[in-house]
Nucleic acid binder design. Structure first.
Lengths: 347, 347
DNA sequence: CTGAAAGCGCTTACAG
DNA sequence: CTGAAAGCGCTTACAG
């Protein structure tokens, strides 16, 4: 392991001052040809790489961005992440990533610890993509930690705004997905519609559930508690939820799933019990992923433009860092992606 | 945005020296009760958070680890990542993540730039998970950059060893997967077996292809160039590859796919053309993901223990950092996960 | 147990 | 265009 050379040694060996080497490296001021060549020679000789740490210390910025994300393995989050990382890199930033594996039912002080770490690392800005902020009621200690973070750094949070917080909020939550799906299934003749996936206590789940119940009400349909099974967001959860629906003896012909993973798991479970989608049961998803385009059947669901959302998030953060923040809120119109998982009832 | 207080100001306001504050913070030496209380009060008052940057500079280590990864959205890589991040966090490290979106056919100096950045950031160690190292012949400039990285920092590379490199290598490559799958399909009576997915020029693809051809040879079967379609690793690639197989008029009854995503895409394409898996065509995957457990049909494939591999990678890196490196190579035995995508021919 | 001081490796007014 | 020097915010021998 070769020791790293410092600017000081470069300066000595090329007979110039540290200041000149620094200026050469940063290109802030023109350096005379003669000195430049000497410096370049010595840098090449030792393969010198300046220490960003020291630079950050004297400059007061680190050119790093912190991202706190619940689950990088979730398609929704990694598509956001990929776009964010791309833009960040283009702007010269490096990303400190904290994957919190946040789960509703597990007590994790992790997020709060990570917020603290990000302050310690003096990142230039932070993006909080979901996590405890998604709960209907985040804990006081979490809110305090988040506010403290926002007090110290530019912070953009993807989630429901907290009043009086120093953070900036972008809320992509879209309860209307359920409305679209419900209308769609209703128009196909379905009247017994189940709802699966999504954790209780999570804001978006509560919003969707409220929409679901309201729609039942408006259509003068009975609300059947047995047709609602809340779980997590993965295929295995959809699988379990579907099994659970079948165990209860409440009839249904259609299912609204929290996302494509849940839908795919449910389809698999129905299949295992001898029911076919869409012939026996129709299913639609609140959150369309690319996985749903290759499944059998393809899953009909609400498609959101995650890339644009990711770009909006990082742009907003960069603007905050530069102090040119403008609070724009644009509408992320979602659209229905029609697969093959729904059919007209009785046809 | 509140300005960050420094140790110096804490020291002044609590009537002790900076040294004492520092010692209190690090718990290196016991500080008298009296002074401790004063310090604690002032720290609480200002919500002081020490600057890791300055700390790193004087300590000579940053408690950060760099990870260079081709595609975090790939299940193989994110399961590695999740395990690595978990262990890293437990050991107090924060991760700088560079997702290179590495693609074989796109010229990207990105990886080399990232190596350079990691040196600049003086991370304590680097994990390189695939990328250009996976090519059958990585470019000279890449190898030079990688060696330079290894010269400056402890580096663990997941990939085929480069002779005389200062980096440490862990090679999980397992060409035997193809052998297992081939034997399996052969034993079910299949004789016309296609091979799809995986980029040409990528080492593991070449290895698998070589194994595939050797097995054809050993079984005295004709090698049909039309039955080999190399593409990328995603569902859309499997879809295209399957379409391409069907267009050619070379008969086949079974397909070996590079991974579950490719297999799922292929199953979808066969379905779209009226062929059913496994009734008309059997398909098996070299790399089993959890997605293959919920697809219709479930995909039979080679399961690898990604979590253990991730743990081995991070453990090896941490040992290198601590200077207690021992070059263990353990065998990652893989096993056949039996889904429903293969059946006995003609039965 | 505690303080004064030097040092980590850069940057940047200030003066020439 | 260039240099000497102070400063960024911490840590840690050294001396008490």
């Amino acid at each position: 392991m070769k020791e790293n050379i410092t600017i000081k040694q470069i300066a000595q060996e090329s007979n110039v001052s540290m200041a000149t080497v620094s200026r050469y490296l940063n290109g802030t001021v023109t350096v005379s040809d003669e000195k430049r060549q000497q410096i370049e020679a010595v840098i090449a000789k030792y393969n010198f790489t300046p220490n960003t740490n020291a630079r950050s210390l004297s400059l007061g910025r680190t050119m790093t961005l912190g991202i706190v994300i619940p689950d990088i393995s979730n398609p929704y989050f990694y598509s956001l992440f990929l776009e964010i990382q791309k833009e960040a890199t283009l702007n010269g930033y490096t990303i400190l990533l904290y994957n919190t594996s946040f789960q509703q039912n597990r007590k994790e002080p992790e997020e709060e610890e990570y917020f603290q770490k990000l302050i310690q690392y003096r990142v230039d800005g932070v993006l909080v993509l979901g996590g405890q902020i998604d709960l209907a009621s985040p804990s006081p200690s979490y809110l305090q930690a988040l506010n403290r973070l926002g007090d110290s750094l530019p912070v953009v949070v993807m989630g429901h705004p907290i009043p009086e917080s120093p953070c900036h909020f972008l809320d992509p939550e879209n309860g209307s997905g359920v409305t679209t799906l419900f209308h769609y299934l209703y128009s196909l003749g379905h009247r017994n519609i189940a709802f699966i996936g999504g954790n209780a206590g999570v804001r978006i789940t509560e919003t969707r559930l409220a929409a679901y119940k309201k729609l039942l009400d408006l259509h003068r349909l009975d609300s059947q508690p047995d047709l609602v099974v809340l779980t997590d967001y993965y295929s295995q959860d959809g699988y379990q939820a579907a099994l659970s629906l079948m165990e209860k003896s409440c009839p249904f012909t259609a299912v609204i799933a929290a996302n494509d993973n849940v839908a795919i798991g449910a389809i698999r479970a129905f299949g295992d019990k001898g029911f076919s989608v869409p012939y026996d049961i129709s299913i639609a998803s609140c959150d369309h992923f690319s996985a749903g385009e290759y499944s059998i059947p393809r899953v009909t669901g609400i498609a959101r433009d995650t890339y644009l959302l990711g770009r909006l998030l990082i742009d907003t953060l960069l603007q905050n860092i530069r102090g040119t923040s403008e609070d724009i809120s644009i509408d992320f119109s979602s659209s229905l992606w029609e697969g093959e998982s729904c059919r007209t009832l009785g046809k």
